[in-house]
Write a protein that binds this DNA or RNA. Structure first.
Lengths: 205, 205
DNA sequence: CTTAAAAAATGAATTCATTCAATCTTTTTT
DNA sequence: AAAAAAGATTGAATGAATTCATTTTTTAAG
């Protein structure tokens, strides 16, 4: 049986995470005070800092859970991709983008991305960055799979191409989060246009 | 002749900008307190806020001047580009990357990028974002120029391709700023590899 | 079962960015 | 040139994140 201490720790951790996620959802990141999170989680402010390095860290913890779901959803596409390069890319990217806004607002994404850049060494920044790397790999894996199926030419550097597609969809998502009026459809259309040249050229003839 | 008020204003603005740039360089962004900037600029804290919306805004003001220089340096390459796609891209990107670290540390770049994402509506965030857009255009212009010279195939969507190259170099620069041990050469090598497939495929045969 | 050591929790104190009502300076009007 | 209006400056007050010396709780040792 787990020691009392370990059980209490896991318990408090969950309470903090739940309290923070709920508050961020309700009032947004900036208006959520550590004091409020602590109160909801029934701990003191000091204790909060025993569990998370700073306020940004707990936002990245909640956002990371979200990214894990996106990653899982992407696996389905990579397993059985549409039979054309553009089709497969649009499908995978569509999954990413559609999932992204389900729980998190643009404001929360902006804050999360900003923190991950600014404090890359904090524990949950590392986790977030690592998940980003996995998403990138996933795109490369998709290209590799298409190569295996003879959809993509054999002499193509799948990893390089995958990274390029990923970096593009990633930058464009940041752009999207920055512009409040930009819609998901706007985003997808722009990314599609950007992807088309490379997608067309790597197709096996 | 300019009114006294206008002259004083320009004067104070310059003093603030100089004081901030010097402090950021000396002690880094986080350790530079508004009170210190105000003291060096011989104004009060309150006055600082009449000139800049917040602390992040003045960092972006200094970084924007830097980006303007990069943009100007890039023009030279676009005017007379090397005769191959990879050569031209490497040259332009080399100019961007080499300039970037001349005045600003990775930490300052990280902070600047983070602020531009988090508060996209502040005056100097808009300016910074606009300059980013110009850099992106510059890459597209380069591709267009290569098309004019018959180096790039005629049926290529130069704007889309340029955006893809730019978004890639941009994301990779962010990655570079996040990893303290990563060198400029590491960065250039990785970007080169990523660019190669698209660069090769768009070449006119 | 007591006691000592280790681990966690606590909240008052500190530190800074930011605000704003009061004051001062410049410009415009009469 | 005096008075009124407009524009700027000022620094003390506010509010929130983060720190840290103390206290409390849990575990391990005797």
């Amino acid at each position: 049986m787990t020691g009392l201490r370990a059980r209490q720790k896991a318990d408090r951790n969950r309470r903090i995470l739940d309290a923070a996620a709920a508050l961020f959802r309700d009032v947004g990141y900036d208006s959520a005070r550590i004091e409020d999170i602590a109160e909801r989680a029934e701990i003191s402010v000091g204790t909060f800092y025993n569990y998370y390095e700073n306020k940004g860290d707990i936002l990245l913890a909640t956002v990371s859970m979200e990214v894990e779901e996106v990653l899982a959803a992407g696996r389905a596409i990579v397993e059985t991709p549409p039979a054309s390069v553009m089709g497969a890319l649009d499908a995978l990217i569509g999954v990413y983008y559609d999932h992204s806004l389900y729980y998190l607002s643009k404001e929360m994404w902006r804050t999360a991305m900003a923190i991950a850049i600014q404090q890359p060494e904090s524990p949950f920044s590392k986790r977030y960055t690592e998940l980003d790397g996995r998403l990138c790999e996933q795109v490369s894996t998709l290209i590799l799979k298409l190569k295996g199926k003879g959809v993509v030419a054999i002499d193509i550097d799948a990893e390089a191409v995958g990274e390029m597609f990923f970096n593009n969809l990633n930058t464009m998502f940041t752009e999207f989060a920055k512009r409040e009026p930009m819609t998901l459809d706007d985003l997808k259309a722009r990314v599609s246009r950007q992807n088309r040249p490379l997608a067309t050229l790597i197709a096996a003839r």
